[in-house]
Simulated scan of single mutants.
Amino acid sequence: MSRLQAVFWDVDGTLADTEMSGHRVAYNRAFSELGIDWNWDPDLYAELLTIPGGTKRMQRFAKRCSVSLSPDLLQRLREAKQRHYLDLIRAGAVRWRPGVLRLLKDLQQAGVQQWIVTSSGLASVQALLEVLHGFSAGPFCGWVTADDVRCSKPDPEPYQLALRLSGVDPDCAIALEDSAPGLRSARAAGLRCLLTPSPWDPELPMDNHHATAVLDHFGAETSCQIHSGPPCEGGRVTLKYLEMLLDLGQE
């Protein structure tokens, strides 16, 4: 069995349930605060989630609405949204995905490198980690965020940078993702990918077969359900299970 050297974690929808009760609400509060007559309901926000990164999301929606967002207004929106997002996290609106905290600790104890690879900005990532578990880094060796790359997911650049920073060969690492852009990014960088699908991603069913395994979560009080991939002993994703996935051939 291959030895796992690095795990690359996506954040939104993978590490934590951040989108509908966190980011979406924070955007709407920022719009209201700055006098912008937008309201992103769950259906609309699910559609907008196909656009990686909050800045691009707002820019494209503005273009759709024939609204001009000046660089200054866009920056103020980002700052207001970040402030409201942090308030929501502190209020308990965002929680770890099932089994995440257990798996983070198990991998840390085993000496496996863990990196965050996300289309979110660094400030959002740090706020989430500080509030959810009282740390700014914790088990993570580092992160690749939207602030570090020119092209976000589905481009492979975020994962290519993570591989360079970690010094790990793609055959000794695995990506944990929940979305079609994330899956495409990981696979284009030569990585195997375990997918815990987001219910908000309409493109994902078409790409599921490109994942090395597809599960509903990582396994906690309830066992995870496997949609594709090898059986998961005890209904939990473990280091042993991730190393099993490394031994499966790439498509």
Results as ranks from 00 to 15, higher is better:
Gln109Lys: 13
His227Lys: 02
Arg192His: 09
Pro197Trp: 02
Gly234Tyr: 11
Leu204Glu: 09
Lys240Gly: 13
Phe218Trp: 04
Gln109Phe: 00
Gly235Phe: 00
Ala211Glu: 11
Thr196His: 02
Gly138Thr: 00
Asp207Lys: 00
Trp115Phe: 11
Leu245Phe: 01
Gly235Lys: 14
Ile174Thr: 07
Ala123Ser: 12
Leu195Ser: 01
Val131Cys: 06
Ala123Arg: 11
Ala173Gln: 06
Ala110Gly: 14
Tyr159Asp: 02
Lys240Thr: 12
Thr238Asn: 05
Val117Leu: 03
Thr238Trp: 01
Arg184Trp: 00
Pro139Gly: 09
Leu161Ala: 00
Ala173Lys: 08
Pro197Val: 01
Leu132Phe: 14
Leu191Phe: 08
Gly167Asp: 08
Arg150Ala: 09
Glu203Gln: 12
Gln113Trp: 12
Ile226Gln: 06
His209Thr: 03
Pro156Ile: 10
Val131Asp: 04
Val168Tyr: 13
Phe218Val: 15
Cys151Ala: 04
Cys172Lys: 11
Thr222Met: 13
Asp216Cys: 10
Ile226Trp: 01
Gln113Ala: 04
Asp201Leu: 00
Leu239Ala: 11
Asp178Gln: 02
Asp207Ala: 05
Phe140Arg: 15
Ser185Met: 06
Arg150Ser: 10
Ala220Pro: 04
Phe140His: 07
His227Asn: 06
Cys232Asp: 11
Gly134Asp: 04
Arg184Gly: 00
Ser185Cys: 09
Lys153Phe: 05
Ser228Met: 08
Ile116Ser: 12
Pro231Ala: 13
Ala188Ser: 10
Leu239Glu: 09
Val112His: 10
Pro181Gln: 12
Leu183Asp: 05
Gly138Asn: 10
Val214Lys: 05
His210Ser: 02
Ser166Asn: 01
Val237Leu: 03
Leu176Lys: 13
Pro139His: 04
Gln108Asn: 08
His217Arg: 13
Gly234Phe: 14
Thr145Lys: 03
Thr196Asn: 03
Leu132Glu: 07
Ala220Gln: 09
Phe140Asn: 08
Leu129Asn: 10
Ala213Lys: 06
Gln113Ile: 14
Leu161Tyr: 07
Asp148Val: 15
Cys172Ala: 13
Ala186Leu: 04
Gln108Trp: 15
Phe140Val: 10
Ser152Arg: 15
His227Phe: 15
Ala186Gln: 00
Gln126Ser: 14
Gln109Gly: 07
Leu215Ser: 11
Thr222Tyr: 10
Ser152Asn: 08
Tyr241Leu: 02
Pro158Ser: 05
Gly190Gln: 12
Ala162Pro: 13
Ala213Arg: 05
Leu245Asn: 09
Leu122Gly: 03
Gly134His: 14
Pro156Cys: 11
Glu157Pro: 11
Pro205Cys: 07
Ala211Gln: 12
Ile226Glu: 00
Asp169Pro: 02
Glu233Gln: 10
Ala213Pro: 01
